[in-house]
Each structure stands twice: as structure tokens, then as C-alpha cells.
């Protein structure tokens, strides 16, 4: 995510509606991916993404521009997802969620073709929820450890060590899933 997201929000607050469209185009797919990987159904994911933007507008005056609007949005997204879970919202595995979201070839077909990407997604899906969330924020969303520590409310050092062990766990999971090419 480019730091210019802040500028887009500033431009929108200053009365430029096109800036908001750019903001949605920039952050929307990424947020939808976040919700899908958390296990939201496609329609639910889009609904939640829309709620993130509504919340963003409602709290725009309180946002302190720091160059990490994506971290701010992901924090909102995480809170919304927690609320969704509390309300008993249905949760799928991320593979299921992506299958429903995307009419691309299913995981079975891709696995048959020996697609390493499928193995990686499957390995991720087999991790526990906390580990998945950490990898989501630190690896997939590429937020700085400092931002991850703020969102997850844990020290930065803890984030760093947990990311290390989570990636090792992912690698072990990848090995356990079946014969494939070695990473090293």
C-alpha cells in the first residue's frame, strides 16, 4: 500500500469525491482478501469492506495521518470481523471462501496439477487462527511490526519472534501436506 492513501483521505476530506473512489479501488480488494482469508463468505466480505469504509468516513476527523492508513483500515476490519464472529456469523475455511468468491479452477484441480500455491494456501489454512492472523498482517498485508503490535496489542519483539515461529510452522505444515519440492 502506498503512503499516498493518507493523501487520498485528506483530499476526500477537503471535498474531492474522486479521491475516495481511488481510496476504495486501492484498499477495497486488499480488505476483501483479508476477510476472505479470515473465512468470510464473498458477499459477507464485501459487506464488511463497505462497513470499513463507512467507519473510515465516520472517523476521518479522528484519524491522525501517519502514512499508514492501511493499518488503520485493517484495525477497523479486524474489529468488524470480531463483531461478526460474536454475532454468530458463518465462517468458512479460507479455501472454501476463495472458492466461493472466485470462479477460478478449484483447489482439487489445482492440487492435481501439483500447484505449489495451492499447497501453500492449504498449509496456511491448517494453522491455528492466531497464527493465521499474525501471518496475515505481517506477511500478507506487509504491515510493519510496530503496526502489527498496535493492532494485536502485543509488544513489537513478541510480534517479531512469533512471525519467525509462525513461518517455521507454516513450512512444517507444508512438508506434512504431501510430497513436494523442498524449500531449501
Amino acid at each position: 500500500m502506498s503512503p499516498s492513501s493518507d493523501d487520498l483521505l485528506t483530499r476526500f476530506a477537503a471535498g474531492d469525491p474522486a479521491a475516495f473512489d481511488e481510496l476504495v479501488a486501492s484498499l477495497g480488494p486488499r480488505l476483501k482478501g483479508y476477510f476472505l482469508r479470515q473465512g468470510a463468505q464473498s458477499s459477507t466480505a464485501e459487506d464488511l469492506v463497505q462497513n470499513v469504509f463507512v467507519r473510515l468516513l465516520q472517523n476521518a476527523s479522528r484519524y491522525q495521518a501517519s502514512g499508514r492508513l492501511d493499518a488503520f483500515c485493517l484495525r477497523i476490519a479486524r474489529n468488524l470481523w470480531i463483531d461478526h464472529r460474536r454475532r454468530g456469523g458463518r465462517v468458512f475455511s479460507s479455501e472454501e471462501a476463495f472458492d466461493r468468491a472466485d470462479p477460478r479452477p478449484g483447489p482439487v484441480q489445482e492440487a492435481d496439477s501439483g500447484d505449489r500455491a495451492v499447497h501453500l494456501r492449504s498449509a496456511l489454512d491448517h494453522l491455528d487462527a492466531d497464527t493465521r492472523e499474525l501471518l496475515e498482517l505481517a506477511v500478507l498485508q506487509q504491515l510493519p511490526y510496530r503496526e502489527v503490535s498496535v493492532i494485536l496489542e502485543i509488544p513489537v519483539g513478541t510480534v517479531k519472534s512469533r512471525v519467525y515461529y509462525s513461518l517455521r510452522k507454516l513450512r512444517e505444515q507444508l512438508h506434512n501436506l504431501g510430497p513436494q519440492e523442498d524449500l531449501s
Partner: peptide, 25 residues
Amino acid sequence: LDQLGAELRDAMPEVSLSEDFHEHL
């Protein structure tokens, strides 16, 4: 591990918003 992280990112399918997303938003 850094390489594994990069692979993981690449393994994620591209996500796009539906056509009526902006309308609902």
C-alpha cells in the same frame, strides 16, 4: 523464511470487488 513469505503472498489469488460494490457502498 523471507522467501516462504514472498511465496505465500504470491500464492494468494487476486481479489476483485464486485461490479455493484460501489453502488452498495
